[in-house]
Amino acid sequence: MSNFFYGIGQGIKGMFQNKMFSFAAIGTVTACLFIFGVFFSVILNFRAIVYKAESQVGITVFFEENLAQADIEHIGVLIKQMKGVDSVKYVSPEEAWENFKKDKFENDEDLIETFGDENPLKDSASYVVKISDMKQEPTISKDIEALEGVRKVNSIEAVAGSINNFNLLVAYVSITLIVLLILVSVFLISSTVAMGISVRKEEIAIMKLIGATDRFVRFPFIVEGVLIGIIGAAIPVGLLYIFYGSASDYIAKQFPSISKWFDMVDSVSVFSVVIPASALLGIGIGLLGSAHSVRRHLKV
């Protein structure tokens, strides 16, 4: 136990003794984990946009002319029972006309008056079907189209395909970037710690010649690497916390139109992942980097 605390003490001492190398190593980890944090936040927000988009688009189902209300309701029940269907909303001809007026005529009274009291969409009752997984959209559309009494199905295949592709792209890009960042961090910290260790290779050789085990020699360097990793993780998390909060406020104030259709993911959701992930990555990078570097000098 005495040697355990001695090793921790030596690790802390070593970090301060090699200020330049420690500073460079902390800087490296900070930069990498800051980039990781930024990417992670961006990715999380992209995913939020995608989920929102997914929840807003739906398949529109139109019925044959003069279909009885009971048949329409029956079709609704059948659709609800289909696998992958999230919700089914009935849009009456009146609602359809109201929505149309709002969207296309922007409530232009003069233009609307030319239609009088007549509802040009009187045969346009429909169901808006929301689905939980966009990949199932073509199958569901086909199944609905096959139902008796259904005249037309406005499929959202193109939209669904785009969302799916975008989802995949975001996942691939984020995984690639995070893996690359981790590799770069391990390489950089390994080189930085190696520089610090090469200055102390004489010390390592002396220890080995007086009978120190590899574990005894390695431990202070591991402590040093882990400390560098923890500090290197704490700085970007702190910076990111300030930066993220400010960015949310800025977007909400300066771009209210964006805020209407997109809410930034809240800090708690982002940092409940970023803090443990950064801490683990920082410690892991420090551990790997120092263990790899010190190993080369242990062969005495």
Binding site: S2, N3, Y6, Q17, E202, E203, A205, I206, M207, L209, I210, G211, A212, T213, F216
Partner: peptide, 28 residues
């Protein structure tokens, strides 16, 4: 072992240089 170039830990004092050999073998 004793070497021509002493091979001491330069940043430590006399006591600490001697003590390290005892620490290595885990003496209380």
């Amino acid at each position: 072992v004793v070497f021509q170039e002493f091979k001491l830990l330069e940043d430590r004092n006399v006591y600490e240089n001697v003590e390290i050999a005892q620490r290595v073998i885990g003496v209380k």
